[in-house]
């Protein structure tokens, strides 16, 4: 069983560590480096509780070897915001009661960031699709969808300004030719 010296940059801090080839990224983060905000919920890559962002993309850290992440930039829930200075996504979850036991929540939020980066103004259906890889057993998802929508509004201040009305009345400017 080979051992490997790797470097992980987690939330901006560089860590050198030695891992067995088989060590999963999530175990390196939790057991070796103490980033226990990232949870393990299954072993079949389905629940998404272990989702972190690796080089800017949401990945399931239970389905990557630590050695594969050598040199990568990892971002975990610990880097989002503090209780006094929430990231909009955290704020969304708090305001919309998007969590109950909280176990799936870190992974849920890391995926939500991906969704919102791809699509700053997702529909409810798009959010549900985007969260396909994250299971929650407590909330029934409805308030999670609300939380992500809430965050989307917060993160797109410009869209909020006229977003509320433009839903009912799309592109009024280009429709000017049509008169009653």
């Amino acid at each position: 069983m080979t051992e490997h010296d790797i470097t992980l940059t987690v939330n901006g801090a560089e860590h050198d560590l030695t891992v067995e080839a088989r060590t999963l990224l999530v175990h390196a983060l939790r057991d070796e480096l103490g980033y226990t905000g990232t949870n393990v919920g299954c072993e079949s890559s389905l629940c998404g509780a272990c989702t972190v962002r690796m080089d800017g993309e949401a990945v399931k850290s239970c389905t990557a070897l630590a050695v594969q992440a050598d040199g990568a930039e990892i971002r975990t829930v610990e880097d989002l915001g503090t209780r006094h200075d929430f990231h909009p996504i955290q704020e969304g979850f708090q305001e919309e009661h998007g969590l109950q036991c909280g176990y799936c929540t870190p992974g849920m939020m890391m995926t939500a960031l991906d969704i919102l980066e791809e699509n700053p103004d997702p529909t409810r259906e798009e959010i549900r699709e985007g969260l396909e890889g994250n299971l929650c057993r407590c909330t029934g998802y409805q308030n999670i969808v609300n939380a992500v929508q809430n965050a989307a509004k917060e993160m797109q201040p410009a869209a909020v300004a006229d977003g509320g009305e433009s839903d009912d009345d799309p592109t009024p400017a280009t429709d000017g030719g049509e008169e009653l």
Binding site: G37, T76, V77, F86, Q90, Q94
Partner: peptide, 21 residues
């Protein structure tokens, strides 16, 4: 009212059993 448990759960500061080292 909003839940007071949430800040710990939302920032990775929660302590689940497996987090204990």
């Amino acid at each position: 009212i909003e839940r007071r448990e949430d800040p710990a759960l939302l920032t990775g500061n929660a302590e689940y059993t497996d987090d204990i080292q």
